[in-house]
């Protein structure tokens, strides 16, 4: 079976019963790791990712320090049991690339220049993978950074979009991810209208690409409300 050859949509319904532009159930838990400066767990359906933030903290060895700014480090990792076939815990090429793009997706949102010579570490652990792990991880990281009290320009919201059987879809699950004709990972600062992550593979026309970006944008705006509500709920003062 190859990309684009698996029937993933029947009568307008996807394999998990969703409509093309329907998100899976989103679950947000905050402060799940007590020793962490800020942590969050975000689930999109069965995909579940933990993010934990440490810092700003002293950066060693010293030659790594930047005198004008703090630095951000991200590590994306998949638990060996999170996928069908056991994944070796050592970072593979995919994890290394994802760690980099996640860092670049979060970096524009953080006032790193306020913390020269320090580091902010964001650790992501995929507990269960069913597609869209990087974007789920970005949402978790955004919340964890906010909870850690890191000054931010905005929250970062992310989602995946794609194309299966010639239909544009939102929030790919694992099987859709594997056999989609197109998949795109997208992140933005919704309050600022700025894109911080854009990765696409598969064949699209310019028009389809535009439409995909539109779907992603409006979804990120919805996720923005979810993130804000989760944070508000946590800091709500009971009367």
């Amino acid at each position: 079976m190859k990309r684009g050859e698996v029937k993933l949509i029947t009568d307008g319904k996807r394999i998990d019963g969703r409509k093309p532009e329907e998100m899976r159930n989103v679950e947000i838990k905050l402060d799940v790791i007590s020793r962490s400066d800020g942590s969050a767990e975000v689930a999109f359906g069965k995909t579940r990712v933990l993010a934990s933030v440490y810092g700003p903290r002293a950066l060693f060895p010293k030659y790594l320090q930047e005198h004008e700014t703090g630095i951000l480090r991200c590590r994306y990792s998949m638990a060996p049991f999170s996928v069908d076939e056991r994944k070796s815990p050592a970072p593979d090429r995919r994890s290394i690339e994802l760690s980099k793009v996640i860092r670049l997706a979060l970096e524009p949102a953080i006032f790193l220049e306020d913390f020269p010579k320090t580091v902010v570490d964001v650790y992501l652990e995929v507990i269960e993978a069913d597609g869209s792990t990087r974007v789920t991880g970005i949402n978790a990281s955004s919340l964890a950074l906010a909870l850690a009290g890191i000054p931010m320009r905005d929250l970062v919201c992310a989602c995946s979009v794609g194309k299966i059987n010639d239909t544009l879809i939102l929030d790919l699950n694992g099987r859709e991810d594997n056999y989609s004709e197109v998949d795109m990972a997208f992140a933005m600062m919704p309050g600022k209208g700025k894109i911080t992550l854009l990765q696409m593979d598969g064949l699209v026309t310019k028009e389809e690409l535009k439409k995909l970006i539109e779907i992603a944008k409006s979804t990120c705006e919805k996720i923005y409300e979810m993130q804000k509500n989760a944070l508000r709920e946590k800091y709500r003062v009971s009367e």
Binding site: L104, P108, K192
Partner: peptide, 30 residues
């Protein structure tokens, strides 16, 4: 690709990009 279809996109760099810039970039790249 030869038929002007876009087959891969990757954003790099540590700053953000705007929606209208994406449109311009895609046209220019094609």
């Amino acid at each position: 690709r030869d038929d002007d279809k876009i087959c891969a996109i990757q954003k790099q760099g540590s700053k953000e990009i705007l929606f209208e810039e994406i449109d311009k970039i895609i046209d220019l790249a094609v």
